[in-house]
Every structure is written in structure tokens, then in C-alpha cells.
């Protein structure tokens, strides 16, 4: 198990290194940051001074070395716009995005598993077919437009929920969360729902396929022959089996939820990292973009790692084979 763990961590570090190189090449080798930093009427001397200050006059490999060295010390540059370390700007926005992504994850489970199991239990019924058709829609519809339509319905027409922004936050352990106030929850509802749409379609598909497969198994027959209620069969025997693929996929998808939050946050003017990324792209605030990307890569890699370990914990068969191997 320890060998496995070490190997997995090694792989993860390799991925981070590869991505760091790519991000570096994309952000530092393409385009000239001096263009953005220097005022348009700066002369050659001023431009060279800026380049020197940023270390841009050195050879590429040396710049890369400096980038890596600084990155290892948690320094990914200073924001051109805010003039504070980029990592600080990102981290300040991180709780909002995490809150959104987690709420989205919860929604997709709450929507996806019951509907998916239902559709799996009655695959040929009207309701089963409707759920599956609906899931195709959830997959293919452009997320941002759904968000706009939700705003139109619930904020503009019905006036039940706010159209955007983040509600009042309370400080918990030094981080600011909106989760604990009613108003904060109201602000979170629509964005989280929008974000959850795609994932719930995914969960529905996995849960439906899983349920259909599990229901045909002999152990379900045996469970029924034991006289168990269908409630217990579905809630324990079926659910526990389909949880394995659902957890695996959802775990992997948590990362992509953070990525998708870019769109949702823009639609709902929600002040998270995603909106910050779009703003930074528009303002050419490259250190922020780099910091965002590096942070996202790290989050992805960590999530992959956790899911692997979690998976081993849920499925007794994996646990055993890993322990042996």
C-alpha cells in the first residue's frame, strides 16, 4: 500500500511539473509582458529596465529556473492590476469558488442519484425514458444560457432570488463563507444549480446504468428471496454498489466543476476565482492567470489522488488487491 501511495504521489508530482512547464511556455514565451507593463510611450531604455527587473533579458532556461524556484516558494508573481502577490489574490477568492463547487456537487448528487436510480429501476417506463432524455439535454445544453434563463425566471420575472453576486459572508476559521446566512444561501442557489446541471446529467447516466446492471445480479435476487423490502434492496444493496462509480466520477469531476465555475461565476457576477480569471484575461494580468492555472493543476492532481485512495477505501475488492500488490 505504501509503495502504491509513493508511486501515485510521484506520478502526481510529474504531472504538476509538466503542467508548470506548459504554463510557463504559454504565458512567458508567447507574447511580451513588457508590452503590457511599459507605458506605450516608454523608450527603449525604460523597456530594458522593466525587462531586467522581471528577468526577461536572461535566457529562457534561466527564466524557467527562476519561475520554478519562485513557484516552489509559493511566489507566482505580483498582480499587475492589484499590485499584490497573485497567489494572495487567488486564495482570497478561493473560498467563494469552493463553496460554489461543493454546493454544485451536492446538488448534482441530490438530483442525479434519485433520478438515475429511478430511471434504472424502471428503464422502459415513461418516467425512466423522460429522465434519460432530460439527461441528454443536461449534457448538451450550453450551461451559461441555462444560467441566464434561470436568472430571467427566478430573479427578473418571479423576483424570488437575487440575480447575482455573493451574499453576506461570515468568517469561519479565518475564511469567509456565505453558506451560513439565509441571504448567502439565496445567492448561492441559482449559481450552484446551474453548475450542477451538467454533473447531475452525468450522475443520472452512471446511476441509471449502474442500477440496471445491479438489478440483474443474482445477489439482488437472493436479497429478494430473503424477504427484504424493496426499500432496503434499493437503499442498501443497489445504492452501495452504484456509489463506487458515482464517487469516482464525481470526485474526478470536482476539478472540472471548479473549471466550469468560470462560466457560472461570469453569468452570475459571482466573485470567485473563475470570474477573477476572466477579468484577468481581459486585463492581461498574466501573473494572476499563471497563479490560477498552477493552483488549478495542483487541485486537479490532489483530487485525482484523493479519489484513488477513496476508491480503494470504498471497494473492498480493490483494497485487498492493493494490499497484496
Amino acid at each position: 500500500m505504501l509503495v502504491y501511495l509513493i508511486r501515485r504521489i510521484g506520478q502526481s508530482l510529474l504531472v504538476v511539473a509538466v503542467m508548470a512547464t506548459l504554463v510557463f511556455l504559454a504565458m512567458y514565451a508567447v507574447g511580451d509582458p513588457v508590452d503590457i507593463l511599459a507605458s506605450p510611450d516608454a523608450d527603449e531604455f525604460e523597456r530594458r529596465a522593466i525587462a531586467q527587473r522581471l528577468g526577461l533579458d536572461r535566457p529562457l532556461w534561466e527564466q524557467f529556473g527562476i519561475f520554478v524556484w519562485n513557484a516552489l516558494h509559493g511566489d507566482l508573481g505580483r498582480s499587475f492590476v492589484y499590485n499584490v502577490p497573485a497567489v494572495d489574490v487567488i486564495l482570497q477568492r478561493l473560498p467563494a469558488t469552493l463553496e460554489l463547487a461543493l454546493a454544485g456537487l451536492v446538488f448534482s448528487i441530490l438530483i442525479g442519484i434519485p433520478l438515475g436510480v429511478l430511471a434504472g429501476l424502471k428503464p422502459n417506463s415513461l418516467i425512466g425514458r423522460s429522465v434519460m432524455s432530460g439527461s441528454i439535454l443536461g449534457f448538451s445544453l450550453p450551461n451559461f444560457w441555462i444560467g441566464l434563463m434561470l436568472i430571467l425566471l427566478f430573479a427578473v420575472e418571479l423576483r424570488w432570488l437575487p440575480a447575482g453576486g455573493r451574499g453576506p459572508t461570515t468568517s469561519v476559521l479565518g475564511l469567509h463563507f456565505a453558506l451560513f446566512t439565509w441571504d448567502g444561501l439565496k445567492h448561492l442557489l441559482l449559481p450552484a444549480l446551474t453548475l450542477a446541471l451538467y454533473k447531475s446529467a452525468l450522475v443520472i447516466r452512471i446511476a441509471q446504468a449502474g442500477t440496471r446492471e445491479v438489478m440483474l445480479q443474482d445477489y439482488i435476487r437472493f436479497a429478494r428471496a430473503k424477504g427484504l423490502s424493496s426499500r432496503r434492496i434499493v437503499l442498501v444493496h443497489v445504492l452501495k454498489n452504484i456509489l463506487i462509480p458515482v464517487v469516482t466520477v464525481l470526485g474526478l469531476e470536482l476539478g472540472s466543476m471548479i473549471a466550469f465555475a468560470v462560466v457560472t461565476e461570469t453569468v452570475f457576477a459571482y466573485p470567485g476565482m473563475g470570474k477573477l480569471l476572466i477579468d484577468s484575461i481581459n486585463r492581461l494580468d498574466r501573473p494572476i492567470i499563471v497563479a490560477y492555472l498552477m493552483l488549478t493543476v495542483v487541485i486537479f492532481v490532489i483530487i485525482n489522488l484523493i479519489v484513488d485512495l477513496l476508491y480503494a477505501a470504498i471497494d473492498p475488492r480493490v483494497r485487498l488487491s492493493e494490499a497484496k500488490g
Binding site: I136, S140, L141, P142, W145, L148, M149, L152, V156
Partner: peptide
């Protein structure tokens, strides 16, 4: 314009998009 209730500028292109994708 959406927030001021002028829904059609965003809604109809979206409907076209949705029809195409579906």
C-alpha cells in the same frame, strides 16, 4: 438587457443554439 426584462435579445439566440445542439 436581460435584467431589465428585455428577454428576447438573449433568449432567442439561445433557443436557436439549443435546437441545433439537441
Amino acid at each position: 438587457y436581460l435584467l431589465s426584462g428585455k428577454y428576447w435579445i438573449s433568449t432567442f439566440p439561445g433557443v436557436a443554439l439549443v435546437i441545433a445542439i439537441v
